[in-house]
């Protein structure tokens, strides 16, 4: 469903990604792993068109989307949750969801309800300003926001980073449910091996901007994987 070929990305003169290849079939949960600063977030941003690509191509659902603007990629069915539980802080929770639903073209109350259904904590907070929610609540809102456009594939960048443990479980369950019950394809950036072992079908490990390992979940148990992830 999502294919990345030979992707080079640079911030000015500092190149971050070198010829990255990645395949995420429909309905799969692919985990992008690696230490801090190896280019995981950059890869997701490049897939979303937030960062320009220097070379290589990104195709989604059979279409080359390398030249498309970010909002056009969202229209094609990519949903993205950036790192660090981002919201529109001065908008209410309801407005945060509304903006995304309206931007997706059809304002569908059904899609908003489905997204809220996944996070039982949110409906009670609809009238609160997003900036005043806890980090965990903001992250749940961020995921719900990405879901109201009914994406075919969801890109999640470290959704449990810096979140209180009780909410980490809820988020993990939600991701699990989206994947197994609803069959949503997911590209998950994650640093922790145990979480990846629980969730992922396939994985890709980046090191210094290059793919150094890729394989199925079973390959993750290989002892050499550990050395690629530990600091």
């Amino acid at each position: 469903m999502l294919t990345v070929q030979g992707l080079d990305v640079a911030y000015g003169r500092a190149q971050v990604l070198f010829g990255v290849d990645l395949v995420a079939p429909g309905g799969s949960l692919v985990c992008v792993m690696g230490r801090n600063g190896v280019g995981k977030t950059t890869l997701l941003k490049a897939i979303m068109g937030v960062l320009p690509v220097r070379a290589g191509r990104v195709s989604f659902a059979g279409e080359d989307i390398t030249g498309l603007k970010t909002h056009e990629r969202v229209r094609r069915g990519l949903g993205y949750v950036p790192p660090g539980h981002e919201t529109f802080p001065q908008l209410t929770v309801a407005e945060n969801l509304q903006v995304a639903a309206e931007a997706a073209g059809q304002v569908s109350q059904g899609a908003v309800d489905e997204a809220l259904d996944l996070f039982p904590a949110l409906p009670a907070l609809l009238k609160r300003r997003a900036g005043f929610l806890s980090g965990g609540q903001q992250q749940q809102l961020a995921i719900a926001r990405a879901l109201v456009s009914r994406p075919k594939m969801l890109l999640l960048d470290e959704p449990t980073e810096g979140i209180q443990p009780s909410i980490i479980l809820e988020i993990e369950e939600a991701v699990q449910r989206l994947h197994s019950e609803l069959g949503l394809a997911i590209l998950l950036v994650e640093q922790y091996l145990d979480l990846a072992l629980r969730l992922a079908d396939r994985f890709v490990i980046l090191d210094a901007g290059e793919v150094v390992r890729a394989g199925d979940r079973s390959d993750l148990r290989d002892p050499s994987v550990h050395s690629l992830l530990s600091v």
Binding site: H71, P82, F88, P89, A103, A104
Partner: peptide, 13 residues
């Protein structure tokens, strides 16, 4: 409030 988040939410900024 958040230009980049608006773009990835599908808003044609």
């Amino acid at each position: 409030q958040n230009r980049q988040l608006a773009a990835v939410s599908g808003v044609a900024t």
